[in-house]
Amino acid sequence: MVISKSQIEEILDEVKDPEIPVISIADLGILRDVKVSDDGFIEVVITPTYTGCPAMMEIERDINNALKKEGINDFKITTVLSPAWSTDLMTEEGKARLKEYGIAPPNPTNEEDIECPNCGSRNTKLLSQFGSTACKSLFKCNDCLEPFDYFKCH
């Protein structure tokens, strides 16, 4: 039986970013494509967020495990660089999940106007251009005084 593309995508929906376990690799824009050939061979195409992202190896392993758990062994994982990953690839669903988790989602219109994911205030301040992972910077809310991560535009 040949498995359909949408079935594979459903399986891969369980693969989350290891650093931000609420957002799937599809919602993050890391999962670029799923190809199923006529004879059932599957190719999963992914793209790294940052060149040195240490999560890529884990993500590959998680894809591997998720497919094998469903009895799928005939596949390969390909990494492509072009076109380069961008936070524009993040889905609305992904952005909502980030916010719920306490991380401010990327704001491409103005990176100085960031909403606090805790209290919703826009009276916030950049503390550090680099945060806990390569993809985030550190902010502070001047109203509720909580520090928070901001997923920076890339």
Binding site: P48, T51, G52, C53, P54, L127, S128, Q129, F130, A134
Partner: peptide, 20 residues
């Protein structure tokens, strides 16, 4: 701490580029 994180994050990007 913040600049410790900054320099090591940049290091990570550079090593990632070196690998490619």
């Amino acid at each position: 701490l913040e600049q410790d994180i900054a320099t090591t994050n940049i290091s990570l990007d550079l090593i990632g580029q070196a690998r490619l």
